[in-house]
């Protein structure tokens, strides 16, 4: 017992010396990016996995405990986490992560969003007033966020600013090279007609010039009804599509229904880091995403 207390005291005493920046990332892509940009100066925790729907997370005790200890929140923003993040902030008793504080970083604040609704009405489903928040499906958006996030890290932990600057430059170079490679690889995908389950992909589509033919969820966030699916089926008779896309965390029921009815190929994309065994980091996430699309095209 004495030993335990001693080691506990030591731990408490030693913690300011180690003083890593503790990052609470709401989604795995921001956890991965934080790790890229922070290296060994940061300790990163991801509140969700790629197999969880980020709209429907509960403010679980474990998340409150993590939020309490965080120096920096790195989240998507634009109401993606509206159901749980404000609660975590309030319950954490942690001034560092309150809205507007230097430890409050929302990725969508630093990019232009697509699909900004012209009118707000819940009869259209669970729409996001600020625009579509799923920006991590485009590496161009990730690059913009990375630059802003690196600047934020340099601001919060100015003692290590040069380290973060180096990490940023290194990341930017590798990322730019990778973007060129991906764009080259994805050239054959241009204009390919695709059906999506949830409107999760506008940034990927914009980047690669893919063509969205239909969305299975006629109302955002509401599982499609049989009628919705039949409507899609009718649409496909006029404008056939090659691929139906869903994300790893989404239920495959609706897409499976469609693949049974038509000759369409189903592709389950990782959507974020950890969405399948091949997507271990941001680089392999896009390697894998493009590979899966190319495989499906043939």
């Amino acid at each position: 017992m004495k030993k335990f207390i001693c080691s506990l005291l030591l731990l408490v005493a030693a913690s300011p010396v180690m003083a890593n920046i503790t990052i609470f990332a709401c989604e795995p892509e921001w956890a991965a990016l934080s790790q890229e940009l922070g290296g060994n100066k940061v300790t990163v925790f991801s509140a969700t996995t790629a197999l969880q729907d980020p709209h429907y997370i509960q403010a679980r005790p474990s998340l409150i405990a993590k939020a309490r200890q965080a120096n920096l929140l790195v989240c998507t923003g634009s109401d993606l986490e509206a159901g749980w993040l404000p609660l975590l902030q309030r319950k954490s008793g942690n001034p560092a992560i309150q809205t507007g504080a230097s430890g409050y970083f929302m990725a969508t604040d630093y990019v232009d969003l697509l699909d900004v609704p012209s009118s707000l009405d819940r009869s259209q489903g669970d729409i996001h007033a600020a625009g579509n928040p799923h920006i991590q499906t485009s590496p161009l958006k990730i690059l913009q966020v990375a630059q802003a996030l690196s600047q934020r890290l340099q601001q919060i932990d100015s003692a290590n600013a040069t380290v973060y600057q180096q990490h940023w430059q290194d990341f930017e170079q590798r990322w730019q090279t990778a973007i060129k490679k991906w764009q080259q690889q994805a050239l054959p995908l241009k204009g390919i007609p695709i059906v999506v389950q949830h409107n999760s992909w506008p940034y990927l589509f914009e980047w690669l010039g893919l063509h969205k033919v239909a969305v299975l969820e006629s109302k955002l966030g509401v599982p499609p009804t049989v009628k919705d699916l039949h409507n899609v089926l009718q649409k496909l008779k006029v404008t056939p599509a090659k691929i139906v896309l869903n994300a790893a965390y989404q239920s495959p029921r609706a897409t499976d229904w469609l693949t049974n009815k038509t000759a369409i190929t189903k592709v389950t994309l990782p959507f974020t880091v950890g969405g399948n065994d091949q997507s271990n980091d941001l680089f392999s996430l896009f390697d894998n995403t493009i590979q899966l699309l190319l495989d499906a095209k043939q």
């Binding site: 902030q89 954490s92 008793g93 001034p95 992560i97 309150q98």
Partner: peptide
């Protein structure tokens, strides 16, 4: 209180 500090509310 909003983030009173040290986990207090």
């Amino acid at each position: 209180t909003l983030g009173l500090g040290n986990g207090f509310t």
